[in-house]
């Protein structure tokens, strides 16, 4: 009896855990370009969105996801010579709960992919991903069985940065591109602003926490 109970508990725990990624999607799953949507929207909606977008884009807190040598350049981006703090991104968080943008820095092995996905799922909405370097973006020279050929097969990537590794300036340029993406998007409904995620608890979060 007790043994049966235990196995039930274990199986429910397994259900709550994010499933291991078995199959990898072969197409590019980057988010659609919002710039070519038609202009429009009410005055209130657009001004609220502009305010929210300004607040968000000027305080993008990155999540450190240093996987390889790109992480060294990521560190020097925050250091005094390049100073990512000028863009509101000085607070690198080691916890997904307090981060807005995940910087995948380095080659993503297939063993690391489920971990990356779990960390991504634990980040609160709204969230963005910068794929830094050739390996994270496409696999780079590591076209082999061990490396995921592009982090966009695991998480949706917003900005890709080529380079091996990208220089700190190139990463800052990518952060600027992401800020531009946040500022120039067009909203047509209140739900697109994404404030409801802050106010209402998500079912998904509860599942993960349980």
């Amino acid at each position: 009896m007790g043994r049966a109970c235990g196995s039930d508990l274990a199986s429910s725990k397994l259900d709550a855990m994010p499933q291991r990624i078995e199959t990898l999607v072969m197409h590019d799953s980057s988010t659609p370009v919002l710039g070519d949507m038609e202009k429009g929207g009410s005055v209130v909606l657009t001004s609220v969105d502009r305010l929210v977008a300004a607040a968000r884009s000027n305080s993008l807190w990155p999540l450190t996801f240093g996987l390889a040598c790109c992480a060294i350049e990521m560190m020097s981006t925050v250091a005094s010579r390049f100073d990512l703090a000028r863009f509101g991104s000085e607070a690198f968080r080691a916890t997904p709960r307090q981060a807005d943008v995940m910087i995948i820095a380095g080659r993503l092995s297939k063993k690391m992919a489920p971990v990356l996905r779990q960390i991504y799922d634990q980040m609160p909405e709204p969230k963005w991903v910068i794929s830094m370097g050739a390996c994270a973006s496409s696999g780079g020279v590591y076209n082999n069985y061990a490396i995921v050929q592009g982090a966009d097969q695991v998480v949706p990537v917003d900005v890709y940065v080529p380079g091996c590794p990208p220089s700190p300036d190139a990463l800052i340029f990518a952060v600027m591109k992401l800020q531009e993406k946040l500022r120039t998007r067009k909203v047509t409904s209140i739900s697109q602003i994404g404030l409801s995620e802050l106010l209402l608890p998500r079912e998904k979060d509860e599942e993960v926490l349980a």
Partner: peptide, 12 residues
């Protein structure tokens, strides 16, 4: 010219 970052994989 190092400013190569972009939004879509096709554009690379």
């Amino acid at each position: 010219d190092f400013e190569l970052a972009d939004y879509k994989r096709e554009s690379f």
